[in-house]
Every structure is written in structure tokens, then in C-alpha cells.
Write a protein that binds this DNA or RNA. Structure first.
Lengths: 197, 197, 197, 197
DNA sequence: TATGAATGAGGTTTCATTCAT
DNA sequence: CATGAATGAAACCTCATTCAT
């Protein structure tokens, strides 16, 4: 058929619709019917294009995780001072979380359910580089001494938890959505203060 | 145990079994059949005692949340120096998380799905007391200046995230369960280091 | 146990409660739980006293039908003029229907479902006597000529249908409960007018 | 039948099968399985087409009631003498009852259970017209004086009760199905005799 | 007698998936 | 490509009934 092969609009439509349902609206349990309705297509097309509901979910999950890794690495391998990199990382994380408020929750819960994802190859190189830069900072006295990995866990926790557990926090702390948003907007500064001396 | 024991053993058995399934094994989607099998009782006893699956889930959820609040308050209202309280809180959180590794995830995901829980009355008093003690510490120069609520969010994040997102972290950081446990065991010290100057 | 055997109060209580549920409130589908609740007894007592739900229903049904026959015969065998007997029959039917509005419906629907009841012996005698009196009236010119049995069917229809089909009639004829009650109160006169010349 | 046929054969098949089960065989309590078996389709197709068992029942009920109203009105608004109309009404009622012996019972019992149906608009006009014609007959001396509505109740009772309560009557009157059918066949004449002077 | 506990049969519904067109 | 129809696997819930005390 002498025309460019274009990965079916419908296929993309379904995937994007499902992604938004998950990450923007938090509807992790969405049925094929609900996805189909949201995308305004016939329900069985999901099976047609993705073989099974589960497979669609996996693909979306996989792509989201990959996206995360890519952007993390972009920052690490960039040519900026360490502290600047962390700031960038926080910025981009928050940006992402604003667009996809349920992304983090979804990844967490998928992994809790035991869905694995293929590991990227160059982890060794990545962690080595991080360690080097981190230890340099510690030596300079900008960061308290600790295992580099603990530092990473700290970053991840401080950034992600408020998003992943937003309803929990709002309920526990009795704060409105507006107040919570304000809290979030001040968070970058707080996190930097906590991570660095 | 020479005393009468009521509230039906079976009822308790079912509730505890379900609780363990959820919080120890992370099987949030457990069907009535699975719960019944685990408890070695007839499936319909779940309906007999709890009317509906959903109701059982709600009760377990409710009780877990209440337990959390109780123990948090016990610590705050105790007669110890602020720093000591935080240490205690971390200790007890870790203890709890060791017993119920999926507790945090469960609460987070239930709340993400929109299940509310009744609010305790004395929040005002609680937060006032916390603020007072917190600000005293800031004044003394033991903690960097920030909104008290941000400090609370920091504590919660640093403690809970590694448990709630354990599979995510293990996968991302390529570390084994043993390594992760070791990481956890060193975490109290790290958290204290980060929270206090 | 040296005391008079009294067919357990509870047994009677259950039966009467069920009867009222059926005939006064029209709850033909009442579950054992509902009956037990209404009687304020333990559910399983129904099985204890009546072996099965079905059996209880049969007994109530049986008794109701017998009651009907008894009172019908009482009237026929009384020493009154034919027309007076019919009037009495209408009166007593209406009285009964006022006390047990759903009695007729229940009997009709039970029989529609194929539940039989034992036949009384003296039907032959009963119908013979009726025919004799009826034909005498026809001869006297008080009633239009027809099969005696058609006359019986007419009586039954004119009396019972408005009760058995009350909701249908109220809905179809768009009349309120009050209006319907008024209609009923005038009905005896109408029926007599229709049955007799 | 050289024309397209839609609205899914199966959907119609299920509906008709259920209808027959109800109205021809009197199986009001038919389960989805029984309906499916009778229609020789998969049980869940009932849910597929009608969403729920209850909904199927409602539809069948609704349609039956509408059918009744339509045919009643057709007769009233026809251009015939009053007496002729009544004769036609009896004829068509009997015809219908022969095809669907349990129709009347079903409607009665559904309404006894509190299921409503949407009311037709033009009742006012209908009843006005009926009153006018009826009172004309009374004036002419063809019918005994009574409320028009009582006359309607009489018609309905005399026609419907023998069908709705057939088993009751057969049992009470000790007559066989053949005898009852014969009785029915003579009934039109009897009813006319009773309604008119 | 009375009761709480337990059971099993039976019913409805939801869903993902497959099939045939 | 797309779709309506069909299917089967689960899952949940209600109930009458039985059991053990």
C-alpha cells in the first residue's frame, strides 16, 4: 500500500486516553468499557490493538517508567553543578506531577502488585557518576555525610510522597486542596534546605 | 487463659486474616474466597459476620487509621524532649512497618480511591502543641526555619516512602532485599541527621 | 411435666405474624428473617416449629382457605331467604377484606403457583342446595336465567376482584385511596343491583 | 420477508420467550437461567441486552400494560353503539386471555408488589367520553342507574376474575379444565345479561 | 426451647475476551 | 479496521436450613 505506515491513530488514541485516565484522573481500575467510552471507540478495539487489557496497562506502565529514567539521566549527565542538578530534578519532577498527579501512585501500586519492568543497562555507570559527584559535595562540606543511596532515597521521598499520598496528607493534616497546592509550591525551597547544609 | 472470650472467634479470625493478607502480604485485591481460604472458613461467613466484602474492608481500614492516630498522639503528648519524641516516632513507625509492610500503601491507595475516614476531634489542640514545640526548637537553632507543616510532611515522607514504595526503590536502585533491609536499618540515623541541624 | 400442653405461644406467634405479613401487608415474598424480625424471635425457630418456610406458608394458606369455606357454608345453610344470604355473604366478605386486604390475592397467587388444597367432602350437598334455592329465585323472576355456576362466578368476581386488583384499578382509573374506599363502600348496593333483577 | 430485520433477533427472542414464560405458563418467578434455557441462549445475554433481570421484567410489564390500554381505547373511540363496544371489549379480552392466560394475574401481582407504570395522558378525555355514552344508556333505560366507574369495575371484574383466579375457581367449584373452558365460552352472554337490563 | 454459628445451594451481575462478519 | 454478538470465568450476595450447645 504505497503509503507511509502510521501507527494507527486509534491505537494511539486508546493508549493516550488510558494513560490520562490513569495518571490524570487516578482511575487505576478502569475497565475496558470505561477506557473505550472515554476514547469513544468500540470496546473490543482494545483487544484488537493491545491483545489484552493487561498488556495495555503494561505498555503504559513501561513507557511511563522509561520516561522517568530518561529524564533522570538527562539531568545527571548534564553539565551543571551538583546542586543545580538537584534543583532541576525537583523542578521537573514537580512539573511532571502537575501534569500527571497520579503517575507516582500508579507506578508504586503497580510495582507493589509485582509487575516488574526491564532494567536499563547502564545503571552501573549512572550510579558511579552520581557517587562521585555526591562525595565531592560531602567533601566540600555542602552535604552531611551519608551513603549516597540514602541521599537518593531522601530526594525521592521528599519529592514523591506528598504527591503519592496527597489524599492521606490532606485528610490527616486537615488542609484544603488550595492550602495543599500552596504547600507544594513552597516545597522546592524546603527540600533544598533539608538536603543541603 | 482463664477468661471468657467472646465477639466470636471466627469473626476475629476473619478480620485478622484479612488484615494480614492486606498489610503483611499486600494482597489488596483479595477476594472473599481468598480470605476465606486463608482463614480456613466457609466463604459466606464473611457475609454472615460483615454483611459485605466492602464493609469488611472499611472496618479494617478504619481500625488501621485509628490505630495510627492513637499512637501518633501518644507520642506527642508524652513528656519527652522534642528530639526524643521524633526518635520515638521513627522507631515505632519502623516497628509497625516491619510488622505490616503494606499498611502504608493500603491506606494511601484506599484514600486515593476516595474512601474517607471520620476525622478525630482534637486536631486543633494537637497541631497547636506541635507548633509550639517545633518553633521552640527552631528558636534554639536545632532545626532550620520552615513552616511546621512542612516539617511534618518531611518526617512522613522520609519515613513512609521507602516502605510504601519499596518495590519501586528496589527496582530502580537495583538492590536486593537484604541490601534494602540494611538500608532501612540505617535509616533512622539518616532521617534524624536530615531533620535536625 | 404436670402442666397443660399448650401449643407453644411462640408457634402461634410466628404463624399469626406471618399471616398478618401476608394478608394485611401483602408481603408474600417475606423471608424467614423478615418474619422472625416481625415476630421478634430467632430466625431458626421457624424451622424448629414448622420444619420449613414452605410448610409454614402452606399451613397458613390451608387455614385461610378452610376459614373461607366454613363461613361460606355457614351462610348457605342458615335459615334465611336467598337474597338475604347473598347480602350476608357480601357483608362478611367485605368485612374480611377490610381486615385482610391481601387475603384474596394471596390465595389466587398461591393457586396460580400450583399449590393445591385438600377438597372438602360435602361439596355435592352444598352445590345441590345452592342450585335448588337459586332456581327457585329464577322461577320467581328475581334473577335472570343462567347456569347456577355462572351466578356463583359472578358473585365471586364482583366481590373479590376489586380487592385482589386494587392497585391495578387505582392506577388504571386514576383514583386515590380515599376515593377507592368510598367506591368500595357503595359496592354492596351495586352488586345486589347487578345480581338481581 | 424481503425486508431487513434488526433490533437483534436474540434480543427479541429473549423478550418473547420471557413473555411467554410469564403470560402463557405463569412462571412469574422464572430465573435468568430458566429464561435463557427456554430461549436456548447463554444466560448472560440477558444482562447483555437488558442490563438486569429486573429491567427485562419491567420492559415486558410496561409493554403489556401499554398494549392493554391501546386496545381499550381503540374500542371506546370506535364508531359503534355502546352495547356493541362492550361486546367487542369482552370478545377481545377473552381472545387475549386465551393467548396469555396469566397476563392478568401478572399485572395484578406486579402492581400488588408496588411496580408502577407511567400513566397515559388522555385519561380525562377517555373517562369523559365513557361517562357521556354510559349516561345516555342509563337514560334510555338500558342499564340500571349507578356511578359510571362502578360499571367499569363490574366489567373488569366479570371479565378478568375468572382468568386471574382460574385455579381458585376450578378448585373451589370442583370443575375440570374442560368444564371451565365451556363455562368461559358461555360467559360473554352471561356478562352481557348482567350488565344490561 | 432457644440460639448463634455455619453451610450450601442458587441467583445475579460484571468483565475481559473471542468470534464472525 | 471495526463492530455487535456471544461466551465463560469469576465474584458477590441472599437465603433457607442444619448443627451444636
Amino acid at each position: 500500500m504505497g503509503r507511509d505506515y502510521k501507527k494507527s491513530d486509534t491505537e494511539l488514541l486508546i493508549k493516550n486516553t488510558a494513560r490520562d485516565l490513569f495518571f490524570k484522573e487516578g482511575k487505576f481500575g478502569a475497565t475496558t468499557q470505561e477506557i473505550a467510552d472515554a476514547a469513544k471507540v468500540n470496546r473490543t478495539l482494545i483487544n484488537y490493538y493491545f491483545r489484552s487489557r493487561n498488556n495495555l496497562f503494561s505498555i503504559i506502565f513501561q513507557e511511563a517508567v522509561e520516561q522517568e529514567e530518561i529524564f533522570t539521566q538527562e539531568i545527571l549527565y548534564s553539565d551543571l553543578p551538583f546542586k543545580q542538578k538537584i534543583e532541576n530534578y525537583i523542578d521537573r519532577s514537580f512539573q511532571r506531577a502537575k501534569e500527571f498527579p497520579y503517575l507516582e501512585s500508579y507506578i508504586v501500586s503497580r510495582l507493589n502488585e509485582g509487575h516488574l519492568y526491564a532494567k536499563k543497562e547502564d545503571w552501573e555507570r549512572f550510579i558511579e557518576r552520581f557517587k562521585t559527584e555526591f562525595e565531592e559535595e560531602v567533601r566540600k562540606g555542602n552535604i552531611k555525610e551519608m551513603e549516597p543511596i540514602q541521599f537518593i532515597v531522601n530526594i525521592a521521598s521528599l519529592i514523591s510522597f506528598p504527591f503519592a499520598a496527597r489524599p492521606l496528607l490532606q485528610t490527616t493534616l486537615r488542609i484544603s486542596t488550595e492550602e495543599f497546592d500552596k504547600l507544594i509550591s513552597q516545597r522546592k525551597e524546603v527540600i533544598m534546605k533539608v538536603l543541603f547544609k
